[in-house]
Design a protein around this nucleic acid. Structure first.
Lengths: 203, 203
DNA sequence: CCTACCGATCGGTAGG
DNA sequence: CCTACCGATCGGTAGG
């Protein structure tokens, strides 16, 4: 991204920045300090340029947030659809839905933190669209549990509460997972998908 | 000149404010918009006074955040100790620890949201002290699961992951619980404490 | 409790 | 990519 940094944070050599580099820097700083806690001057510092130069690569600070959150939310839904696609068994469907959601939260930690902390800083109508997509996701998980209960595979009498619990348990992975930790993202996702089935009351 | 706004936020009659009222307003606004997303002028607006008058009831914005987060974190630990105090059975200990944690997140939603979203906006050394207390809590839950596994009551092979999952599942209650919803705080806490035992692998 | 006011910093624009 | 600069707003202080 930027070569030969001085101790003060800005680069010695002339920086060449791209929209992707700005987004990458925003991802790290928004995740660390929050949207309102991050100044554009801090993003510029990381990239080794002056604040006004950012505007060659983005439209506004709000646009940066919107792109990050909207893209991530859409990918979560796409993940879900692909995970359960052409899988018949309802237990296996829930297992895969939980596993892919958990895996994303281990592999895209910054995005997950930003979506969950700063979604309310989004301007309308994007904020409502994002919330609607998240509701759809939670509803799909609830429906899986209900279906499993009808088929006698799950026992949980409160599918809505269980769906929220399962999803938020997976979200929490983004808050503690370390790439250099003792477990791989895949192993953690596998473990949490087991928890999901237990919460649903796998019989 | 006392302009009497009726709809836009400030009060008609002369306001009498207390430290508790300032904290209450901060609680609501920090939870809604985040610490950095809330201006002191907004807190003053809610109370019907001018921003500088806030300083008769608090030391600084940062102090407001610190009081909210430190008090809440200490109460969570006190809750835990009281819940497991003089309870011998390890399954019952975990059930009670999860239930009291879940219950607090249903009954103190604003505090919970602020602790989880804005703890990193705390200045040192308070931030580190709060994080240490939270680690101690998670460690205590993990120890309960390990103890239960040793006694053959639980089966979970990853007590650390299970402890994080259980706690964060309970935290999530603060994000969706409504006092006027279909379930009481106690009922939700009861349900989530069942989930906790399932995640631990109650045999 | 208020008005008056402070320096600092914010996101963003003009113009090259 | 830069410098120069904008109006708005921030948390906070002085002084009554």
């Amino acid at each position: 991204m930027v070569s030969s940094k001085t101790s003060a944070g800005r680069s010695e050599t002339k920086a060449t920045v791209s929209p992707g580099a700005v987004r990458e820097a925003a991802l790290t700083l928004f995740a660390e300090r929050g949207y309102h806690g991050t100044a554009l001057s801090q993003i510029a510092d990381v990239l080794g340029i002056r604040t006004p130069s950012l505007y060659n690569h983005m439209k506004s600070k709000q646009d940066l947030l919107r792109d990050i959150i909207a893209d991530t939310t859409e990918q979560v839904w796409a993940d879900y659809e692909q995970a359960v696609h052409s899988v018949g068994d309802v237990v296996e469907r829930l297992r895969r839905a939980a596993r892919v959601y958990a895996l994303r939260h281990a592999t895209h930690r910054r995005e997950a933190i930003i979506v969950n902390r700063d979604v309310d800083s989004l301007e309308e109508p994007v904020r409502s669209e994002v919330l609607e997509l998240r509701r759809r996701h939670a509803g799909a998980i609830r429906d899986l549990i209900e279906e499993g209960v009808r088929e006698g595979r799950f026992t949980e009498p409160e599918p809505t509460l269980a769906a929220f619990g399962i999803l938020e348990m997976c979200v929490s992975i983004a808050r503690w997972f370390r790439e250099d930790g003792p477990q791989s993202a895949e192993a953690v996702a596998e473990t949490y998908s087991r928890y999901a089935l237990r919460v649903a009351g796998l019989s």
